[in-house]
Nucleic acid binder design. Structure first.
Lengths: 348, 348
DNA sequence: GTTAGCACTCGATTTTACCGAGTGCTAACG
DNA sequence: CGTTAGCACTCGGTAAAATCGAGTGCTAAC
């Protein structure tokens, strides 16, 4: 769901020629990573003006904040605002046939648990785009519980295993300060099942208020499961091609910072969710609030199931990334993921 | 279990003075990252010789392969062999009090599943040492099965959830081409339990040869579980502080290569296991066979439970890493992990 | 065997010069 | 009036030259 405006919106008032010039600068700078001069812009086929004219226009574009000059006698470089304009006016890109094939091939062959599919998807996306990818799977707050089981490990130590309708499984250690017989455990297990099957983690359940061993176990179990809810737990984050960070960003310090962000899964999740919430598909530079990522652009596409957003795929690169291709890739993969999880029951 | 030889072994014949010089070079180069000259070595307190003498000795050390000269008029730099000698003759380091406290604190407070503990341990190690850490948890080939459960997801789609005595839980999708009633599923679940509880993945079990629905489900389940065995699956890899790679190695290309290795979990596991198998605690430069890691040193310490190696902690840095501190940290953490999993039943 | 003395090497740093891409301005042009 | 050719000017990047100095190897004396 990229915010793509083809008619001109409120403040983005650029006449056709300025727009063309801006676009040319962006395209060339993305390609060469160098400041772009007036003459190479003027060489652009769609433009039949002299460099001098381009220059006067560029002065305006600079004053309006779309372009910047690294130093007096250099060409122009797009600002975040410039990239934003470019992206907003980008007509949908088409994937190369090779990439389309790669995606098709991938989804035709992936097997296994959701987690595995998501992890491999991250790798796919990274290979597809040459950027670092992020795949987020939402928690199962909406999924219903299919089965709960309490397994005895040793005297005071049990394991609570829950299976959800979305195919995920969780486990929690149950550590209690009292002895429980195998019978107690299996009885508690039975009661937990009776109590929880069919509920979601959001539903309220009535726990027994008795004080016997079994009741205590049941209470402990229920509270453990529900305790998991408010935290981000259940969110899964998979990162693909983190080594790309090193080739795509220049400057060790930037690389370090980006890597360091990627290490913090919670941060990544909230970043992706923020962007999705704003209804934007791409956040450029400082648009997302993350200082250390101010030289990055993040492209996000949601993965949904029956209208619900159940996850997202994202790509992270420098602000001068290949938006068209990457957005196309993100969109294609997210669509495939959606049908993959939607078409077949839960997972393949 | 570092290979530490204090008496001189076979080929490492260095008289006391050469040893001191070599050590001084290593120490200083680790500290400064610069080639070390004869005069700064001679300034070393334990050495009462002139730079000229040091120089003649260094010529020998160079001929024997312990030192190298980046170019004619520069100081000396240790070779892998030089580092090896240094490490082999290193007396056990002691951890700083601050670090000891950090470790104590950590293990006093960690809670949660094995997986969580291992993941957090990776972060701890990285913070402790400023290098990238690797924590490997072995698979559960030796653990006995405590419970197996088949849960129905939809018509042809079930989930096989197994709980092992080491507290791990696995799940496998079971996709069958025939209808199974809820009764079939729970009956199959019951039979799987009867069949598998108490066995390990290495044990052989007799599967029913009947052709009814239940028997088919049972066979499918058993084979799925056992299929998991030969692969590395069940091995868990946690990497801590991957952003350290960017600050610890110089040269974007090296950073990229190392990151790219770390992305491939299977590679990391086999690297760590290789090193452990050789009974070595540290692999320097090209000692481990990995070309792309030839500028790295890897320090590994096993985590064991009742004599069995159940995992390992590792640290990865440049060959000029702070061996003494890092080895001490690795050893301390691995010991703590060992008692953490050993002392308390399985996990805390 | 050790060391002071010394000529020599050679990478790193600094200096200087220079080039040229690109600019802004101005004046002419249609 | 918008457009453009012409031109002086800026300034980062690159290359060549000069310089520095840490460190070496060798030799001769202790």
């Amino acid at each position: 769901m990229a915010r793509r405006v083809n008619a001109s919106p409120q403040p983005s008032n650029l006449d056709a020629r300025k727009a063309t010039i801006l676009e040319a600068v962006v395209v060339e700078h993305i390609d060469t990573a160098q400041p772009v001069g007036s003459s190479s812009v003027a060489a652009n086929a769609d433009l039949v003006v002299s460099p001098a004219t381009v220059r006067t226009e560029m002065v305006v574009l600079e004053r309006e904040g779309y372009l910047a000059q690294p130093h007096t006698s250099a060409g122009r470089v797009p600002t975040d605002k410039g990239y934003r304009y470019f992206v907003d006016h980008l007509e949908a890109g088409v994937l190369g046939p090779a990439q389309q094939r790669q995606i098709k091939e991938f989804f035709a062959h992936v097997r296994g648990e959701v987690e595995d599919v998501l992890e491999q998807t991250a790798t796919l996306l990274s290979r597809l785009t040459s950027y670092t990818s992020v795949v987020v799977g939402s928690g199962h707050s909406r999924a219903t519980i299919l089965s709960v089981q309490l397994v005895n490990l040793d005297a005071h130590h049990h394991l609570l295993v829950a299976v959800y309708s979305d195919g995920t499984v969780t486990k929690n250690s149950v550590l209690v300060g009292f002895d429980a017989t195998p019978f107690d455990v299996s009885e508690a297990s039975r009661q937990l099942n009776a109590l929880l099957i069919g509920t979601t983690l959001e539903s309220k359940v009535q726990v027994p208020s008795r004080t016997d061993t079994v009741a205590k176990l049941v209470r402990e179990g229920v509270s453990l499961l529900h305790a998991e809810m408010p935290t981000m737990e259940g969110e899964q984050v998979y990162i693909g091609g983190s080594s790309r960070v090193a080739e795509v960003f220049e400057g060790v310090e930037t690389v370090r910072q980006v890597l360091s962000i990627l290490e913090q899964e919670l941060l990544v999740v909230s970043l992706v969710e923020d962007i999705l919430e704003k209804g934007v598909a791409v956040a450029i530079g400082s648009e997302h609030g993350f200082e250390p990522l101010s030289s990055c652009a993040v492209i996000v596409a949601p993965v949904s199931l029956e209208g619900e957003t159940i996850g997202a795929v994202g790509l992270l690169g420098p602000t001068r990334m290949k938006y068209r291709e990457v957005m196309a890739a993100a969109e294609a993969v997210s669509k495939h993921l959606t049908t993959h999880f939607g078409g077949e029951p839960e997972h393949a």
